[in-house]
Amino acid sequence: MVKILVIEDEESVRENILELLDAEGFDAIIAENGQKGLHLAQQHDPDLILCDVLMPEMDGYGVLSALRSQGKTATIPFLFLTAKAAKTDIKQGMNLGANAYLTKPFTLAELLDAIATHIGVIHR
């Protein structure tokens, strides 16, 4: 089963993503901030990470930078899911090594397509 780590500080968004992933047969792990997400990524070795940018304790850019600097987590596909939609925000995320940058609101199809692109699994 594909394991996806969701790092999102807004409970309603986090729960909605968790529901969507569960319905599609993914094993979802959740973290409510960047520090916890970083710890869970190191502990659970997920197949893919979905992460917000603006969060307490450590933002998504910090999480991505930390993951990319560690051998064990450096190659985990990383997708930003965020409301930060300015071109400079997207460029910053991609320059740090994100595999994709989806802006909120996003559709289920957009999310599933991004996941499939980066882990090679098609759920429909």
Rank of each mutant, 00 (worst) to 15 (best):
L108W: 03
Q70R: 11
F26Y: 14
L20Q: 10
L48K: 02
S12H: 10
D113T: 07
Q35G: 00
A28C: 15
K104G: 15
E57R: 14
N99P: 05
P46N: 11
A86H: 14
K72F: 01
L102R: 00
D47I: 07
E11C: 00
A85Y: 00
A86Q: 15
H39N: 11
A109V: 14
A66D: 11
A109D: 15
T75K: 13
A66N: 14
A109C: 07
G25K: 13
L111C: 06
V63S: 10
P56L: 10
F78S: 09
C51Q: 05
S12E: 07
D113M: 04
A100M: 00
L64I: 03
F80Q: 08
L40G: 00
K87M: 10
T82Y: 01
A85P: 03
T117D: 05
A83W: 02
E19C: 09
N99L: 01
A98M: 01
A100G: 12
L20E: 08
E10L: 13
L50Y: 04
L21M: 03
T103L: 08
V53I: 15
P77T: 09
L18F: 08
A66F: 08
D52E: 11
G120A: 10
V2T: 12
G62P: 07
I119L: 00
L40V: 04
L5I: 10
D9F: 09
T107S: 14
L38H: 08
A28K: 10
D47G: 13
L111M: 13
G93F: 00
L96E: 08
T107H: 01
L108T: 13
L21N: 01
V6H: 07
R68Q: 06
D59G: 09
A74Q: 14
T117I: 04
L38Q: 02
H44P: 02
L40N: 03
Q70F: 08
E8L: 05
K91I: 11
A98H: 00
F80I: 11
T117W: 00
I17T: 12
A83V: 13
I49G: 04
A109G: 07
T75R: 12
T88V: 11
D22N: 11
Q43E: 14
L40C: 01
A83S: 15
I76M: 02
T82R: 05
T73V: 08
I49V: 15
D59C: 09
V53F: 05
T103S: 13
G97I: 08
M94K: 14
F26R: 01
S12I: 10
K104Q: 14
A41N: 08
D45T: 12
T82G: 12
L79C: 11
Q42H: 11
L18S: 06
G71W: 04
E19Q: 12
A74V: 06
C51R: 04
L79M: 11
L40A: 03
V13N: 08
M55I: 10
I115E: 00
G37F: 09
E32S: 12
A23S: 13
A100C: 01
D27L: 13
G60H: 04
L50F: 08
L38I: 02
T73N: 10
Q92Y: 05
G25V: 13
Q42V: 00
H44E: 15
I76Q: 03
I4W: 03
T107Q: 00
I4Y: 02
L38R: 02
H39D: 12
L21G: 01
N99K: 02
D45I: 01
